[in-house]
Nucleic acid binder design. Sequence first.
DNA 1: CTGTTAGCGCTTTCAC
DNA 2: GTGAAAGCGCTAACAG
Lengths: 333, 333
Amino acid sequence: MKETRSSSIREIAAGLGVSAATVSNALRGKGRVSPAMVRQIRARAHELGYVPDHAARALRTGKSNTIGLLVPNIGQPLFPAFAQAVERAARQRGLAVLIGDSRGDARQQDFEITNMIARGVDALVVIPTRGTTIAPQSVPVPVAVIDSAATAGNVAASDHREGGRMIARHLIDLGHERVLLLAGPENSLVARERVGGMCELFRSAGIEPVLKHSDATFEAGTAFGRALDLHRFTACAAAYDALAVGFAVAARERGCAIPEDMSLTGFDDLMWAQIVSPSLTTIRQDLQAVADHALSFVAGETDASRIFPIDLVVRESTASPPAFPRKGGRHAE
Amino acid sequence: MKETRSSSIREIAAGLGVSAATVSNALRGKGRVSPAMVRQIRARAHELGYVPDHAARALRTGKSNTIGLLVPNIGQPLFPAFAQAVERAARQRGLAVLIGDSRGDARQQDFEITNMIARGVDALVVIPTRGTTIAPQSVPVPVAVIDSAATAGNVAASDHREGGRMIARHLIDLGHERVLLLAGPENSLVARERVGGMCELFRSAGIEPVLKHSDATFEAGTAFGRALDLHRFTACAAAYDALAVGFAVAARERGCAIPEDMSLTGFDDLMWAQIVSPSLTTIRQDLQAVADHALSFVAGETDASRIFPIDLVVRESTASPPAFPRKGGRHAE
DNA sequence: CTGTTAGCGCTTTCAC
DNA sequence: GTGAAAGCGCTAACAG
C-alpha cells in the first residue's frame, strides 16, 4: 500500500499532449487556456488523483499558505478555544496552521519563531508568553501580536482594562468595600490591564483593594484560599477564572459560603465558570473576533490595530455583602 | 523592515570561495569536509543568520519533517491536552505539527487528510471523529490512528474497556445495584468500549444498568439530570466527565445530594473533575504515553500497536448507597 | 491560446 | 576533500 505516489503536472501534460505550463494555468484558472482544454485537463487531473505538491509550489512562489500560531501554553484552558478560533479564521482564507507552544519560556518562544520562519510560514500570530514582547521588525513576515492594548505592536486584543472596570463597578454597585484582588502574574501585561482597570474604579470609589500576585493557576487560587484571612474581605476579584475557581474550592473547604460570606469574580468565562458551584460571575471575551482580526491583519486586509469589547457575565457568585444596608448610611463591621 | 531575506547556501559558498555542495555538507555534517572548512562555513552561516529554506529541502528530499494532527474537535476539553502531548513528542523528534480540526464531520476529516497530504506531511496522527474509520492504505504516508482497541488499524489507545470495568467494580464494591449509565454517543467506538467494560461487570454481578445515549457534552448531562427520575438510581456512571459534570449540576438543582443520595462517576479526568463539587471519581488516561507511542510508530521506530493501562481516580462523588447494609442481607427500599 | 525556457534553494551522485 | 551538474515539481515570463 501507500503507493499512491501522486502524479505530477507533467504526467497530466504528457498524457494530453500539452505542456506543463498549460496544465498549471488550467488548473489554477490563470493565464489563457481554452475552456475545452481546461475541462479536459481538470478531468484528467481528477482521474489521476492529482494533488499539487505543496513544497514545490512554496519554493517557486515563496508562499506557503501556512501561518504559525504561537501560544504560551496550550495546556491552559483558554488557549485551545483561541487556537480553534484562529484555525477557523485561517481555514476561511485557505491557510493551514502550524502550532507552537512556548511553554511559558521566552527562549522557547524565540526558538519557535525562528523555526516557523524557517518552515516558511507566511505570517505569524503570537500570543506572547508573559513578560516578553515581540519585535515585529526582527521577523521577516507579518506578525499579529495578540496581547493587551498596552503592548507595543499589539494588533488585536480584548479590552481587558474595560473588563476590569466592569468587574469593579459590579462589585461596587453591590456595596463591597473590602476587596481582595488576586492579580495574577506581575509581569503579565494582560493581567496588569485587568487589574489596572479594577483598581482605577475601586480607588475612585475610595476603596483600596489588597493585591496578591501569583501564577494564573487553579493551584495558586487554592493556596490563597487556604492561607488568607477570609474574614477581612467581602469580595474577591480574580484576574483569571482559574484563580477564582481555585480560590472557591479552598474557601468552601474552610466553610466560607459564596456569595453569602464573600462574593467572587473571575475573568475569561472558561467553561469552568459554569461548572463550579456557585457559577462564577466573570468577563467574556470575543475570541473569534480577535482571531479574525489577527488573520485579517496578517493577510494584509487591514493594517489597523483593534481592541474588542468585552462582556460582563453575572452569575451566582456575586451578591451584596452580608450586612449591607440597602440605602445610604454606614455600619460598623 | 521585514527585509531580512535570509541568505542562501550559495551566498555562503560564494563568500568563502567554495561550492554550494560543500556548504550543504558542512552544515549538516554529512559527506567529507575538512574540519577547518566546516568551522569556517558554520561561522559564516551563523554570522549571516542563515536559515535553511524548508520548502527547498522538502522538495529535494521529499520529507517535510512535519506531521499532521487531526482531532475531532479542538474545542472539547480533552483534545488540547492531547494536542500538547503530541506536540511535545513531535518536538523531541524535530517534527513540527500541523493541526487540523474535523469539527465532528467525516467529510471535513477527509478533506483535512487530503489537505495535509498535499502539504507534504510525513505522517499523520488522527483521532477519528466518531462514527468514522480511517483506511491507512488509502493514505500515502504512515498514519497513527488513536481511538480504541476495537478500532481496525488502531495504533495507540488507552484501555477504555478496562477503565469501564474499573468503574463498575468500584460501584459494585460500594454496594450499588440500581445504576444509570450515561453512555455517550452510540456510534463512538471509544464510548462503546467504556460502556462495554462497565456492562460486562455489572451484568456478571446481576445488575442491569439503564443506558442513555447522547452527545458527550455538559449540556446533554444537564438534560438527563433534569429529565430523569433520579430516585430510581443509587449511582450514575457516565462515559465522559463532561456528561457527569453536567448531570451533577442538574442533580444539585433538584436537591439530589452527591454522593449521599446518588454516587456519580466520570471518565477522562479533565480538570473539571477536580473543580466540581463534590470532586469526581473518574478514570485517567496516560495521554503522553499514547502520544509518544503514536509518534514512535509514525517515525518508524516500532510497528506495534499498543493499548495503555488506565487509572481509577477515586474522589468524593462516590460512596455506598443510602441504606446499604454494610454486610450481607437485603432491604426493602 | 499554448509552448519554451528558466529557475526557486537545496541535496545528491559522481568525478576530480 | 571538494566541485560540477542534475534535478525535486512547480510557476512566471515571454515567445510563438
